[in-house]
Amino acid sequence: MPDSPVSPDDLEYRHVSGTRVIYRARQRRTDHTVWLGLALHLPAFLLSLSLVLAVALAFNAWLGVPVWLPTALWTASGVLAFHRPTEALLARHVLHLHRPLPAELTTLAPVWREVTARAGVDGSRYELWIEDSDDLNALAAAGHIVAVTRRALQDLPTSQLAAVLAHELGHHTSGHSWSGLLGWWYTVPGRLVWRALALVKPRLVRIARGASITAWGLLLVLVAYLTVITAKATYGLPLLLPALPYLTAAVGRRAELRADAHAAGLGFAPVLARLLEQSIAEEDSHPDPARGTGRFPAASRLLSHHPDHRTRLHHLRKYL
């Protein structure tokens, strides 16, 4: 089959049909960011487990349901992260994605086949999705979801689209996607309780305003006593809880850099670097008024799970 004309932007990328592809024997692995991320989710998991146990005890008291049954079902429910129909529901109703239209699939599928062929990965194991968004973005989720935004599919040259997909494939092959989903799933009970507290917050504030100074003093003494007792019993581990969001964000940023390294290892470093340079130039020419604002902008940056474009570009230099 003769090669089709290629624009200068696509010189780093050629899709050649009929090429023999050799798959790697081990197509997935888990790097250190996976285990660090799961370890940092452990306190939230234990909190959620205690909430599930409380619900199980209530069901046991009211309906006679064995305590172990709902607890075991919730603990085992994490396997749904790799269940294809459940992933489809997650993609549609949580991530708000949709299947590619025929014209979109005509553009996306050949690029995905080229990227996965370079990586020695069976691309048919993954599901391609589209996000209706004006951002230049893509995402990898669960065990098999790979999505790009409509704008990325329409505006990015083929080479840059391939580099973005290679980055997302790196999240899958390194285990970032499934571990992130498990961390999210097992903290759902805790987040539901937090949302419930947010709903009753106005009422709690009104009650607190009407409390006397004596009541406030007794409450503070009780909280301080419980804090000291808990810290002694757990060797001070709860004191690390305020640092968990920052540590989790740092691990997330490291995972993004690892995914960039995966794309660079497949030969997409120059294309990805050019894409990052374009993003930096766009940010400089059209600054976001909300960026860097707030009471503690440095803390906001530390809580970001994505490194800024300049940091990513700096780490890509060694592959150029």
Rank of each mutant, 00 (worst) to 15 (best):
Q27C: 06
H32V: 14
T33A: 14
V34I: 04
L36A: 14
G37I: 01
H41C: 13
A44T: 10
L46K: 00
L47G: 13
L49A: 15
S50D: 12
L53H: 06
A56G: 06
F59T: 11
F59V: 13
W62G: 06
G64C: 08
W68M: 03
T71W: 09
T71N: 11
T71A: 09
A72Q: 10
A72G: 13
W74R: 03
S77E: 00
V79R: 00
A81S: 10
A81L: 08
A81E: 02
F82R: 00
R84W: 13
L90M: 09
R92N: 02
H93A: 04
V94A: 13
L95P: 00
H98M: 03
H98A: 11
P100H: 07
L101T: 07
L101S: 11
A103C: 06
E104F: 02
L105W: 05
T107C: 12
P110T: 05
W112E: 01
T116V: 10
A117H: 04
G120S: 10
D122H: 11
W129T: 08
E131N: 12
S133A: 07
A138V: 04
L139C: 05
L139M: 15
A141E: 04
G143I: 01
A147E: 07
V148K: 09
T149Q: 09
R150G: 14
L153K: 10
D155K: 05
D155A: 13
P157D: 07
P157Q: 10
L161I: 12
A162W: 04
L165Y: 05
L165P: 01
E168R: 00
L169R: 01
